[in-house]
Amino acid sequence: MNKVGIVSYGSYIPKYRISVEEIAHIWGEDATELKNQLQVPKKSVLGLDEDVVTMAVESARNAVNLWDGDPKLIGAIYVGSESHPYAVKPTATIVSEALPTGKEIMAADLEFACKAGTAGMQMCFGLVKSDMINYGLAIGSDDSQAKPSDPLEYTAAAGSAAILIGREGIIAELEGTYSVTSDTPDFWRREGATYPSHGQRFTGKPAYFQHSIDATKGMMNQLQTNPSDYDYVVFHQPNTKFPLSVAKMLGFTKEQVELSLVCRHIGNTYSASSMLGLNRILEKASSGERILMTSYGSGAGSDSFSFMVTDKIEELQAYPFDIEYYIKRTIDINYGLYTRYKGLLK
């Protein structure tokens, strides 16, 4: 069988941050209580001249620069997001031209709430494995929206992650992937609506937890692996508490999940969330280590992946614009500026 895996990865997080205190102050909420609950002290916010496209391009360029290959060899680009700037006019076309790839390329924008990026990864794995393309680029990029004063306002953040998939120069080989899907109305946004709605507590147990658990168990069952066979595990991160809880329910330790928790620094980046967690692990992992990743998208579904890190990983770990770089470069803004940056003033 053909080997297939990750050959490079790139991340992007905007520079602006707003703290839980700053938001809680506006709505008269208890910031300390919220921080204990969510374990997200601040979240990333887009600059005035940024959107899902610009973030996708930055993460994709980081992936291509780190790889140091010819972007013309990329045969497919899929961009997952629930906040594409155009309702009609694909983000993927702009990313393609900004790399630039060749014109002979498959491309599409995907939507599946927070798991549209990992759906793109699966498409690329399939296309590479079946020899239809040499390399495929899957991107998760989101500038998530939250209604002012909604609980989601404390965590809805912005960021992008790009994963380059191929069969040559693999740094993390795909061992298997497994998905679950069900019609679950936990979180939605109707066409033309500015903000998403959600089923409050319903978003937890039957939605996030059930799907993440089913996909992860299915993945491990398929490969006959156990939690202890993995060095790192990544889950979708709507806040920091959920991935820690689901890890515990499945029998993973806090240590296995901790490195992936980018949410702790920047909040929930939706389609980019689990992929940024994976990128952070790829930045630190060593040859022979095993990674399990499970995304979650409302609506609902989960994609689980098992990866084995190869000895090529070290060649792709010394890169100046890694997640640490983006986490550290920050400009704190107050709620007034936040309303301007998020376009809340109509």
Partner: peptide
Amino acid sequence: VFRILARDGHEGLIKYGFK
């Protein structure tokens, strides 16, 4: 870096480029 250079109102095109 790759950024938005200009937006043509709320319905028009978005112009991207380097900054």
